[in-house]
């Protein structure tokens, strides 16, 4: 189940091309780091992989078949954003947020340190670190083949960061899930990734 982009190019409206001819592959179980200065289109690239944006040219394929951007059902590439408070419906209690896509089992909740009592709260009653655990849990449905962590733990303290990553790495290993890590933190990238791509290289 290789995730692959072929010659994709993207720009917003009439603005200059953000990138052209990007060829990129990730294999199951592989953890790839994506680094580069801000404004080079890292987040946009992630959004294309996860089906939030459609590239102007080229295609994104999973196992050789295109992922249709508007297909029904669960998207096999899941994106976790940097700011959990912006990715959660403020009017839903956390239990509903958690179970929107699938019903995570107790084992996963324990691994991520999600407490039973948080499920009856509203998002504004939890801290960023607590909310991000929910965003990770809901993205780890059984049909997730690839997880994209776009600055997933940038806002969190080191202990929470390590907690979340330990849980994610364990699941990735069990399920042979691929992970794409976007981060400015060199140490984190070095700690996690098998392979690192600098965005300059992506841009050729």
């Amino acid at each position: 189940m290789q995730l692959r982009t072929q010659n994709i190019a993207f720009r917003y409206g009439k603005e200059p091309w953000l990138f052209k001819n990007v060829n990129f592959t990730v294999d199951p179980g592989e953890i790839v780091g994506l680094v580069g200065p801000s404004g080079y289109g890292k987040t946009t690239f992630c959004r294309i992989l996860a089906g939030y944006e459609v590239p102007n040219k080229g295609s994104v394929t999973l196992n050789g078949r295109p992922i249709k951007s508007k297909r029904k059902g669960y998207h096999p590439v899941q994106l976790v954003f940097q700011h959990p408070e912006k990715a959660i419906n403020p009017r839903w209690k956390m239990g509903k947020v958690l179970n929107e896509g699938w019903q995570p089992d107790q084992q996963l909740l324990d691994a991520l340190g999600i407490e039973e009592e948080w499920l009856t709260r509203f998002p504004n009653e939890l801290s960023g670190g607590e909310l991000q655990r929910f965003c990770v849990a809901r993205a780890l449905g059984p049909d997730t083949r690839y997880l994209i962590a776009d600055e997933m733990t940038t806002m969190l303290d080191a202990i929470t960061q390590a907690q979340i990553w330990k849980a994610v790495l364990k699941i990735a290993e069990q399920r042979e899930m691929g992970i794409i890590v976007v981060s400015h933190e060199v140490n984190l990238i070095q700690q996690l990734c098998h392979r690192v791509i600098e965005i300059d290289h992506l841009n050729t």
């Binding site: 080191a158 202990i159 929470t160 960061q161 390590a162 907690q163 990553w165 330990k166 933190e185 140490n187 984190l188 070095q190 700690q191 996690l192």
Partner: peptide, 10 residues
């Protein structure tokens, strides 16, 4: 817990 150290959480 820092990634440049042990990366072990409590």
């Amino acid at each position: 817990a820092l990634p440049q150290n042990d990366f072990i959480p409590i």
